Simulated assay, not measured.
Amino acid sequence: MSTQKSVRKEFGDVEESELRLGQEKSEQIVDALNTDLADTYTLYHQLRKHHWNVEGAEFRDLHLFLGEAAENAEAAGDEIAERLQALGGTPVASMPNQAEMATVEPEDGNVYDIRTSLKNDLEMYGDVIESLRDHVELATNLGDHATAQILRDILVQTEEDAHHIEHYLEDDTLVFETSSE
């Protein structure tokens, strides 16, 4: 660990940027983006957990899908972090701060059957989607059309991944459950 003790910028401070959005507007958007960032990384970690632990007849497809979905969440997090930094903010990066700022509730550390895991993922996706929509509207109303567009692009991918989970949860399957009588 570094012995450097001088802080270059306090977390939570928003500096003026060359984007000319204005301090008050930038602060509102940075706060919203940090919430999105914390939520996105919470989703990322839950998807990775399920990617690592999936078993059963659909293992391969679900393992690959969950890996791709986690990569999509990671890419979204990177876009969000870079945008809020460009607005003069500091991305929420420490695990304790992310946990504190996240508005989504992660699954506990236990391993569940994949149907339960996917239902938990879908629930979190729904919360993330609602927040992204709210923040697209916030950015648009504050005149930050670039942030609104970035969030729209992330929203499209997030909704697509959630829709895939919906398909995995349908009852049409080649795998039959056997009764244990």
Rank of each mutant, 00 (worst) to 15 (best):
R83S: 11
F65E: 06
V156I: 13
F65H: 11
R133N: 07
A69H: 11
E27Q: 15
W52F: 05
A93S: 14
D171W: 11
I114G: 02
D36S: 11
T158W: 07
E18K: 12
H45E: 05
E68I: 07
D36N: 15
Q4D: 13
P96Y: 01
L66D: 02
D39Q: 08
M1R: 03
G77A: 11
R115I: 15
T42A: 05
H50P: 02
Y112Q: 06
T90Y: 06
D161R: 12
G77R: 01
G22F: 04
D134E: 14
H164P: 00
D61L: 06
I29S: 00
D134M: 03
L151T: 05
V14P: 12
K119Q: 15
D172M: 08
G67L: 01
R60C: 01
G88Q: 04
Y125K: 00
S6E: 15
D78Q: 04
Q46K: 15
I165E: 04
L169G: 11
R115M: 08
E105A: 10
T90K: 08
N110A: 14
E137R: 05
A32S: 15
S179I: 08
E170F: 09
G126V: 03
Q4I: 14
E71G: 08
I29W: 00
T103V: 09
D127H: 12
E123Q: 13
A76T: 13
V54L: 06
H167L: 12
K25L: 04
Q149R: 05
V128L: 13
E181A: 11
E107G: 07
H50L: 08
D113G: 09
A38H: 10
L19A: 07
I80F: 06
R8A: 14
A86I: 07
L122E: 14
G12F: 09
N110C: 02
E71S: 12
D31L: 06
E15L: 14
Q23V: 00
N141K: 13
P91Q: 01
S2K: 07
A93K: 03
R20H: 14
A102F: 10
L169A: 08
A73I: 01
D31W: 00
F59E: 09
Y112E: 10
T42Y: 04
